[in-house]
Computed example of a mutant assay.
Amino acid sequence: MYNLIVPKDKLLRQLNKQVDFSFVYEELRANYCLDHGRNIIDPVRMFKYLLLKAIFSPT
């Protein structure tokens, strides 16, 4: 469905293809405990949200 809606030349599609967001896990490893406390929101998902907010927020 995603492939039908989002054009191939769209900035967000290109960004997702070009950037390996796994670096976020490494950067935050000391701040997240995987087996204690509440379930966390995936750090990569949160990073992408903040990136989208930075790109598309009116200044």
Rank of each mutant, 00 (worst) to 15 (best):
Y2H: 10
N3R: 07
N3V: 04
L4G: 15
L4H: 03
L4C: 10
I5G: 07
I5Y: 11
I5K: 03
V6K: 03
V6G: 06
V6A: 02
V6Q: 11
P7Y: 01
P7T: 14
K8C: 04
K8Y: 13
D9M: 04
D9L: 05
D9Q: 13
K10P: 00
K10M: 14
L11D: 14
L11G: 14
L12C: 12
R13I: 07
R13Q: 14
R13S: 14
Q14R: 13
Q14Y: 10
Q14G: 14
Q14S: 10
N16I: 01
K17L: 11
K17N: 12
K17H: 11
Q18K: 06
Q18Y: 07
Q18L: 11
Q18D: 04
F21G: 04
F21P: 08
F21R: 00
S22M: 08
F23A: 02
F23K: 03
F23T: 07
F23Q: 02
F23N: 01
F23G: 07
V24G: 02
V24R: 08
V24D: 08
Y25W: 05
E26N: 12
E26S: 15
E27I: 12
E27Q: 10
E27T: 04
L28F: 09
L28W: 03
L28V: 01
R29C: 01
R29K: 14
R29Q: 09
A30P: 10
A30S: 12
A30K: 15
N31W: 12
Y32P: 11
C33V: 08
C33T: 02
L34Q: 05
L34W: 05
D35Q: 14
D35S: 15
H36M: 14
G37W: 00
G37S: 11
R38L: 13
R38N: 15
N39V: 02
N39K: 04
I40Q: 00
I40M: 00
I41A: 01
D42T: 07
D42M: 04
P43E: 03
P43N: 12
P43Q: 06
V44F: 06
V44E: 11
V44G: 00
V44D: 04
R45C: 08
M46H: 03
M46T: 11
M46S: 02
F47K: 05
F47G: 00
F47Y: 08
K48G: 07
Y49A: 09
Y49V: 05
L50H: 05
L50A: 00
L51Q: 03
L51A: 11
L52N: 13
L52I: 11
L52K: 02
K53F: 04
K53L: 06
A54K: 13
I55T: 05
S57N: 04
S57C: 04
S57Q: 06
S57F: 03
P58T: 15
T59H: 01
T59A: 00
